[in-house]
Design a binder for these strands. Structure first.
Lengths: 225, 225
DNA sequence: TGATTTTAAGCATAAATTAAGCTTTCTCTC
DNA sequence: GAGAGAAAGCTTAATTTATGCTTAAAATCA
């Protein structure tokens, strides 16, 4: 499950990101409405968490634009206001639910689950060929063989499979899996690709991760053009 | 798509260049405002990425000069400042968008895409006759046969097909695909044309690349005059 | 402490480039 | 219009360079 948080206060954004990642969500953060909108339109998220009061473009405007673009992605509003009018206003703009600040993390989680309930049924697990990944239970199978992965290994494989049939560039991998935004000369990715390939090979899923030299890696669904 | 980065910090410039090249942009770098302005005025870029604080000529001044010269190329500012005043100042000078340092590469990419959105007509896949190129998955097909190309081979073929039914001169090819801007007597192009023709022939797409003696090469859409 | 993550180095191989010889095409002369 | 010579392009092999893979050791985390 991939979430986008649009929130300008770094403290809250970080707290949410950490907490949600512990729950095995893949979390991106945008710190203003403008970049948030761009990200929401370009990437496919399963849910947006949008603060009402953000710079560059208000949350409500982000919401309107997203709907205008034809997206039905669930949107959850964070708001300090709690007058009925404001809430109605937000929901009219296309939001699915709201939560008042300050809120309990548990409550947010519950509301997220409600929104994702429908999706969860169909998208409970990710797969590519005989490989199956269950982000909820944190398990990986090659056919019926369970593969034990470390957290980083899991994150990398999940990212690759989530983006299957698309090239994952080194920069994107380093950003999404390692959260590194500037270091360009590290070889961690290579090392983890080796780890993954070794474990996958041992379980019978060899050759699933292909190298695109000079660019990155790709996991292809067999039988796709 | 051809970009110019004007940025004096070699680390950031290198990181940007590498990352953007992975996304299949052709990237030039200038390390100060003066040479950046010269390059921007001499060559045709699809977008400029300009740091605010650079030696020789400030980013804002570069921006003004470019506009003064009548160019409408989209300009994206990198700035460490984020006060409303500075941003307004930059946008007034003719910039199209800005991004605060430190920024996420993904966000930069999103903003670049927004600026190029208009230019990008049908960006998903390119074709000429039975040849199909998918820049996203880095795949090339001749009908249903997949052709495996190296990065340079891919870049060259992409450039030729993107400019199909137009003659691509040797100097333009060497500029766009190899990033060489001075006259040189290299025969790399010939060699790579040979490589491409051999692979295309083997896959059943023979004769797609035609030679225009004394000028360059052309890929023609069959059935076009 | 043991597991996990990261760094660093050497190695292997793929890709890029150069250089040379060969072929084709064009031009000029007779 | 035939032939010589020049120029442009093609092809191949050799060389150089870059990239990715692997391993081991160091650092970090829990």
């Amino acid at each position: 499950m991939r979430l986008l948080i649009i929130e300008d206060e770094p403290g809250i954004a970080g707290f949410l990101k950490d907490g949600l990642e512990e729950e095995y969500f893949a979390v991106d953060v945008a710190y203003d409405g403008k970049s948030g909108l761009d990200m929401a339109l370009i990437n496919e998220y399963d849910l947006l968490i949008v603060d009402w009061m953000i710079p560059a473009l208000s949350g409500i405007e982000v919401c309107r634009q997203v709907r205008k673009a034809g997206s039905t992605v669930p949107i959850l509003f964070l708001t300090a206001k709690d007058t009925l009018e404001d809430i109605v206003f937000g929901l009219d703009a296309g939001a699915n639910d709201y939560i008042k600040k300050p809120f309990e993390f548990e409550e947010l989680l519950a509301r997220i689950r409600v929104q994702l309930r429908n999706k969860n049924k169909t998208e409970d697990s990710l797969s590519a060929g005989s490989l199956t990944i269950n982000p909820v239970t944190h398990q990986v199978f090659c056919a019926s063989n369970e593969i034990t992965l470390t957290p980083k290994e899991f994150a990398l494989l999940e990212y690759l499979v989530r983006n299957k049939d698309r090239v994952c560039t080194r920069s994107r991998i380093i950003e999404h899996v390692w959260d590194i935004h500037f270091d360009s000369d590290t070889s961690v990715i290579d090392v983890y690709i080796t780890f993954l390939r070794r474990k996958l090979e041992a379980a019978g899923c060899g050759n699933i991760i292909q190298t695109i030299r000079g660019v990155g890696y790709i996991v292809r669904e067999p039988g796709m053009s």
